[in-house]
């Protein structure tokens, strides 16, 4: 082996080892794992790439207009971006940041979810009351499913069989069978539902309602709302509590809920449904993303133009990192 190549390969390992050896509390989060965090900047039409180790900006990538929803392929090699005003999904290489191709998305794509296998992509077309299904390999539209007014939130069960779309003005979670591409049930939730996240056991889906100020936990088998979570923060008016993004840890024990203009992320015990803590983050927090090792959580803060870095184990905000204007989506890859 060429010695210079070997050195390059070894270097990250050596660095990781060195940090692990001199482990300090301040450096612990994410340090053992140098990945990348991608953030879409809605008003800059760009995507910021941040090194998860140094938290330095590696690159600012020009995207289509009004980039919002953002996700990564299961292997972390591809980054999918909803370019809402260009009516397409853009696919980027996560190491070169080059746009590889675009996918048809239907009008005004806002959020989407990838099938756990990496294909297809289910896209919510906010202006058109549709969910569009796109084959990520061929770029062909496989189907369109009419849903409620202003579809946004998209969640898929771990086995890929159940897709949940939320429609903001209709205030419903639409349960879609991914094999038949048909709606099987519509569950009313509180006003303006924005996000759907399955628990890792696939038994429930959590749906946030921005105007309602609540999160509904819906049982998948019976399509019943089994719990409506509410949030109270001293000194913050009820109106400012507007839940949006949700993430649940792989062990299913803890949920994190972004609370919009309340500038907080709620930490929820999924067994008791109790809010354990409110973490103060940047302004108007939209979405959340775990690092691949789940040690770190990132929040995109739309009004303060930054992301907050949260240490999952200690449930503490450790840092904030400047992004472009109006950061909306966030995803972290190895």
């Amino acid at each position: 082996m060429n010695p210079s190549i070997r050195r390059r390969v070894l270097l990250p390992l050596v660095r990781a080892g060195a940090v692990a050896a001199g482990l300090t509390a301040a450096f612990a989060p994410g340090a053992a794992f140098a990945g990348k965090v991608f953030v879409t900047n809605e008003r800059d039409h760009t995507m910021t790439v941040i090194d998860s180790d140094s938290l330095k900006t590696l690159e600012t990538v020009k995207t289509g207009r009004r980039p919002r929803g953002l996700t990564a392929s299961p292997d972390g090699k591809l980054i999918y971006v909803c370019a809402s005003d260009d009516n397409r999904v853009e696919v980027y290489d996560s190491s070169t940041y080059k746009m590889l191709r675009t996918l048809p998305s239907g009008p005004d794509p806002e959020l989407f979810v990838l099938h756990p296998s990496g294909n297809p992509l289910y896209i919510a077309n906010e202006d058109d009351a549709l969910v569009t299904i796109v084959d990520t390999d061929t770029g062909k539209v496989q189907g369109e499913i009419p849903v409620g007014v202003e579809p946004e939130g998209m969640g898929i069960s771990p086995d890929g069989k159940v897709l949940v779309n939320t429609s903001e003005t209709t205030s419903m979670a639409h349960f879609i069978d991914t094999s038949t591409k048909q709606i099987v049930e519509n569950v009313l939730v509180d006003s303006r539902p924005r996000y759907a996240e399955f628990t890792p056991d696939g038994k429930t889906v959590w749906v946030s309602a921005e105007v309602g100020g609540t999160v509904s936990v819906i049982d998948i088998a019976g399509h019943q709302v089994v719990k409506r979570l509410t949030f109270q923060i001293p000194g913050v008016t009820e109106d400012a509590i507007q839940p949006v993004g949700i993430r649940i840890t792989k062990d299913g024990s803890t949920a994190f809920v972004a609370l919009g203009p309340a500038n907080r992320v709620a930490v929820v015990d999924t067994k008791t449904y109790e809010v354990k803590k409110y973490l103060l983050v940047g302004q108007r927090v939209w979405q959340l993303a775990f690092s691949p090792d789940e040690k770190t959580l990132y929040s995109s803060n739309g009004n303060s133009n930054d992301i907050s870095v949260i240490d999952v184990a200690s449930e503490k905000v450790t840092k904030s990192v400047t992004t472009g204007r109006s950061p909306w989506g966030v995803v972290a890859v190895p």
Binding site: G148, V149, T169, T170, M172, I183, N186
Partner: peptide, 10 residues
């Protein structure tokens, strides 16, 4: 129109 988009589900 908005009411009917919702209405068709119920």
């Amino acid at each position: 129109t908005d009411n009917n988009t919702t209405g068709r589900f119920v």
